[in-house]
Amino acid sequence: MKLSDFVGKPCKSRAAFEFVPKKRTHLNLEEVAKKLKEAGVFIEAETPFLLVVKAGVGVSIFQSGKIIVKETTLESEARKIAEKLVKMLE
């Protein structure tokens, strides 16, 4: 997965930035959590359909592949954070 496979847009709440996969996606969040932990990312909450990780700011990763980067509405900053996480999942 690359970030170019996602559409980025501000969240409806105007408090975050989200990246939605262009194609139908199904992530195995258990595997995702394992990879991120190995890469040294702190997992704040782990559920079967949603992971919340700390990557400088809080980031939610959904089973559907959607990524929400919290605490920023700046696309450039959100893109950097999401790009870094997506690379870790390769």
Binding site: C11, A15, F49, T73
Partner: peptide, 10 residues
């Protein structure tokens, strides 16, 4: 004021 919606809502 802007605030993030609860992400865990199905």
């Amino acid at each position: 004021r802007p605030a993030l919606c609860c992400n865990i809502v199905p």
